[in-house]
Design a protein around this nucleic acid. Structure first.
Length: 276
DNA sequence: CATCAGGCGAGAC
DNA sequence: GTCTCGCCTGAT
């Protein structure tokens, strides 16, 4: 067990912000306890205010989770950079102040955000879990509980389009099939993409079937940690029109635009909840 | 019963 | 280059 104190960190908000589809609350009753499967490993995390408890060895924490959760970044500093006259952005950032941009697996993000298009959170999570259970490697914890890794490109490339339809992936089935074939047979080099800068990575990712500008930006932000990436979806589009008719100040925020995008997205998403 | 979710590709112009 | 349209499926 590793215990640390960290401000501007809410595992719940990170989960709800929808950047990670395999982050779940373990027990509804014991509020604040979560499980995730990432980078081929299983982890349980518990949060009590600004105290975090990672159920792993100190070595594993240093090797994997410190970077995964972006614990070295000072998010308070990012919020302090916001234009004091931009009351909307100030409110959005304060509302989602526990959000952090994770450093997730590239392949998992590619498939996850192809699945996410024209889709809702609940169904996205279900689709991803189905893919993992059917085509991911099965692992067991010491107590016997099973969990599944995210399927490799090679494993997904073997799955027919018909079989993917049977996972309720709909029209995205053919996108996933084609993209998996490209990745498995070396038409696109995932390791090379990891070494590219933002613009190069965007161009390369958009070559994949089912990956357009929006999805490529999500992949850049959540897997490659290109924090200048600013994915524009229906929520962001609406906010840009309503709050930033004269244009969002990308120059001012530069490499923090992606982090601010997450505050805006989350704020708009949750406000929508309240109306319904 | 319609509409719509964290878009994209193909085809028309 | 820009615009339109169809698309799986489940929730409301």
């Amino acid at each position: 067990m590793v215990s640390i104190t960290k401000d501007n960190f809410s595992i719940g908000q990170i989960c709800e912000s929808g950047q990670c589809f395999r982050l779940h609350r373990l027990e509804e009753i014991s509020d604040g306890k979560y499980a995730l499967t990432a980078l081929g490993q299983y982890l349980e995390v518990e949060q009590r205010q600004n105290q975090l408890f990672f159920d792993c060895t100190p070595e594993e924490f240093e090797r994997v989770w410190r970077e995964y959760f972006d614990l070295e970044e000072d998010y308070g500093k990012i919020m302090d950079m916001i234009d004091p006259e931009d009351t909307y952005l100030l409110k959005a950032a304060a509302y989602g102040s526990g959000i952090r941009i994770l450093r997730q697996d590239l392949w998992e993000m590619i498939i996850s955000f192809i699945v996410s298009q024209q889709n809702n959170m609940k169904r996205i999570r279900k689709c991803i879990e189905t893919l993992c259970q059917r085509y991911g490697e099965e692992k067991r914890l010491e107590d016997g509980r099973k969990y599944y890794l995210f399927p490799t490109p090679e494993a997904l490339a073997k799955v027919s389009i018909e079989e993917l339809y049977a996972c309720n992936l709909g029209y995205r089935s053919k996108y996933i099939h084609k993209t998996s074939m490209s990745a498995a047979f070396g038409e696109v080099d995932l390791d090379a993409i990891k070494r590219m800068d933002y613009k190069e990575a965007m161009t390369e990712l958009c070559k994949l079937t089912g990956v357009g500008e929006k999805v490529a930006n999500c992949i850049c932000l959540f897997a490659l940690h290109k924090t200048e990436a600013f994915p524009v979806d229906t929520h962001i589009q609406k906010v840009l029109k309503e709050q930033y008719a004269d244009g969002f100040p990308f120059e001012r925020y530069a490499s923090y635009a992606g982090t601010l995008q997450q505050y805006i997205f989350y704020y708009d998403l949750k406000k929508g909840d309240r109306v319904c």
